[in-house]
Write a protein that binds this DNA or RNA. Structure first.
Lengths: 230, 230
DNA sequence: AAATATATTATGTGCATACATAATAGCAAT
DNA sequence: ATTGCTATTATGTATGCACATAATATATTT
């Protein structure tokens, strides 16, 4: 009992929420009261309550007190998919092959997504990711050279553009869109799928401090599943 | 300077990581040293560092000190999709229609997923979610009656099973799988799609304290996209 | 009654202090 | 060299205290 009291308190409170002792939307006792009940300092209670509030289980207001969140929004966290790890997680050997890499003017949607001027060129890469030498995913990527000019000299046949960028611009932010499309001829060829097969698609755009780095589409081989836990 | 110092400190440190002043994998100064540098108490530094560690940017070890995470895993958070909110977010009016609801013995995969005995029956629901009276998603759901017997008396034509369950078993946990399939005849009919169209699928299983509540598959109308931010 | 000022209250934050704990480094004994 | 003890060190946790801040309730004024 002499250890990790804030943890114990937090878990206890979480249970009180989950069991409904503290009902949805209900006002729970104040910090001082809880401190007395649990026999610890208000600081400790505060820490536990803030953690639960971060978690979305509680909503806290000055003076108004703390209440259980009315519309509980469970949020899932998942790691941004790095293809090599996805492959290795299945126990297969990862490799990749660069199909093409050229400098050219991107189409309009990419220009706007990377915030480029209409005449700017960008670096375009087509890559196939392989699991035990069989196609796993096909990637189309645009890189903003103004942000990462050094990628032109990167050894992209050894290290994938994805990983090279992660190491060069480590803590960028971005957005991700998941969707499903029917394979067109190009995709079908790249991952050895039948024309029209349902393909899981991930589009990702990343930037670093308002400067856009890269945007890409990943087309996964049929049967691919993305797993997450809440 | 008299306000939210832990916040300021945290943001400052985050910047030092992002700009590479504290490089990937590098050991950063100890708490006392940082406290001296920032001119605040060690407690405040500790709070900021712990927040960044929670975020996955730092890795902390007793004695070993704190270092920048070598393999930065950006993690996305997203709210577990509640169909009604997805529809309303697009500015459309939500409604739903229950196609069928019966008590019957589930197929083997569902039995194992819901941890049922082979002869147990479960509650099976087919629902279509509508946006402005046009199909938006088709849902197949199994509910474990041992866990939530009262669902049999719930007014499921007014409130969707999803929302009813969220309110009854508010803080359950679960897992989610995303994938893509080609529409079969049943799905195609339900959401007015063409046979073979690529369909975005979400499978979700939720439980509460080791007891399984429900498992469901959601088939979204073609063109659906799930958006997330890192 | 409506508008304004004031007191009250619950949470938010920062600090100094004390002790706990895990992991390492260094030393000693075999 | 290997093993095992011990000291050191950086982080982890808990507490008491003081003051800040936001939101509400109450009293006061017009």
């Amino acid at each position: 009992m002499t250890k990790k009291s804030h943890d114990t308190v937090r878990l206890s409170m979480q249970e009180r929420i989950e069991t409904g002792e503290w009902a949805l939307g209900a006002l729970i006792p104040g910090e001082v009261e809880l401190a007395a009940e649990y026999g610890c300092a208000r600081t400790t209670i505060n820490r536990a309550l803030q953690a639960l509030a971060n978690n979305g289980m509680l909503i806290r207001k000055r003076k108004g007190g703390t209440r259980v969140c009315e519309m509980p929004v469970r949020q899932a966290k998942f790691a941004i998919p790095i293809v090599r790890e996805q492959v290795e997680a299945t126990g297969n050997k990862y490799s990749h092959k660069v199909l093409s890499s050229i400098l050219k003017a991107p189409p309009a949607p990419v220009i706007s997504r990377l915030n480029l001027h209409p005449k700017d060129k960008a670096f375009y890469l087509e890559t196939v990711h392989l699991a035990d030498n069989r196609p796993f995913a096909y990637e189309e990527r645009w890189v903003n050279l103004k942000a990462v000019p050094t990628i032109l000299t990167a050894p992209l046949s050894e290290i994938s553009a994805n990983e090279w960028l992660v190491k060069s611009v480590p803590f960028s932010s971005g957005d991700v869109v998941f969707s499903a499309i029917n394979a067109d001829q190009k995709i079908a060829n790249s991952i050895e799928a039948t024309l029209g097969t349902a393909i899981f698609v991930v589009e990702r755009t990343t930037w670093y401090k308002k400067e856009f780095i890269t945007t890409l589409k990943l087309f996964y081989k049929e049967g691919f599943q993305l797993y997450t836990r809440l």
